[in-house]
């Protein structure tokens, strides 16, 4: 595939898709969305440019070493376990705090959200890894 329109569009659409993915991640706790879906969307957005230029060998910052996304994601997941241990509750219990923010009634942050961000990055890494393993030539 070598289309000028797709290549030009990929540059800008990619960031639109990624921001949409982040939106899906943020609304995910009680609404449709969440880390997995957001991660898939973001992963495909990152891959998108590779498809447009028909080249995954392109030395690009976002595409290099998908393992680091997985490392980051798994690390965040691990972090999300720690508060429950220190709170003396069973492992993986959700701990919530409310951060006072002006003009809002306060934003609730909790370990499930951290877990979701972790899933988000892990899924990005996995998606990239999948696509690479299926497109790479010898």
């Amino acid at each position: 595939m070598n289309s000028v329109i797709l290549q030009l569009a990929a540059k800008y659409l990619r960031w639109l898709l990624i921001s949409f993915a982040v939106l899906a991640l943020l609304r995910g706790h009680n609404n449709p969305g969440g880390g997995f879906i957001g991660g898939l969307m973001a992963g495909l957005a990152i891959v998108y440019k590779g498809f447009a230029f028909n080249a995954f060998q392109v030395k690009e910052k976002l595409l290099k070493r998908p393992e680091r996304y997985m490392g980051l994601g798994l690390f965040l997941i691990l972090l999300s376990f720690i508060p429950s241990v220190f709170a003396g509750k069973p492992l993986m219990t959700g701990i919530w705090i409310t951060v006072p923010v002006p003009f809002f009634s306060g934003i609730k942050l909790g370990t499930p959200f951290l877990f979701d961000i972790g899933v988000f990055f892990t899924v990005i890494g996995v998606t990239l890894l999948f696509v690479f393993s299926l497109t790479q030539k010898k």
Binding site: E67, R68, M70, G71, L74, F75, L78, F81
Partner: peptide, 13 residues
């Protein structure tokens, strides 16, 4: 379960 998980992360890093 968690211990191998921690080591997977450190090996990825």
């Amino acid at each position: 379960i968690l211990l191998p998980f921690i080591f997977i992360i450190s090996l990825l890093v």
